[in-house]
Amino acid sequence: MDANKNNKTISLGFVTVRHHPIHGYFGGYLIVNSLARPLEFHCTLPVQPTRAQQILYGSTLAEFVCGEQIARALVTKAKGTPQVLFSDTLAVLTLRHMQSIPMAVIEFPNGESSSLPRPECDRESYHRFKAFGKQFSVLPEFAEDSSEIQGLFDAQKSPLDLLEPFGRIEEALMEAHPATKAA
């Protein structure tokens, strides 16, 4: 990735999925510019895996629903293409198999929780790296994403907080699906 890209052209994608015990899975996707201002937002309607899917995908159900279904639908629908995709949900990383944008999951600091739980994921093998004071994970088969991501931000002096947009997405999901507020 071109590290000298003009700041104004930089856009970042933040995709996340939350799980509601009654309504199922909700996904949100926010594209922001280099000043963290929103450019696009997409969210899915609630997704409830069928019993058949639960049986067929077993322990990989979350990766299938979150990454291949929800995140894929969101990224496909967006008009803009960000330089990098971030998520806070490991189960979303399987999306990387289906598109070419570098992608990483950022770990939230210990003890930081969200109003709606993030789906659990059983996969254990990730390529992990630290940058900008944060811990990142990428799929091992896309380990080169780590250097691309670090290269992108080495050139940036934006004060953007990479964890903060997930809070916005979560609030937007609750606005779009008010029933989830009671969870």
């Binding site: 210990n110 004071g133 944060k134 931000f153 907080d161 903060e164």
Partner: peptide, 26 residues
């Protein structure tokens, strides 16, 4: 408050709880 991690490579950041931020609400 703002967590400008772009300017920091301090590993301790991950363990430090982030302070609240001020959001607009409709």
């Amino acid at each position: 408050t703002n967590d400008p991690e772009f300017e920091s490579d301090d590993d301790s950041e991950t363990a430090k709880p982030r302070k609240s931020i001020t959001r607009m609400r409709p």
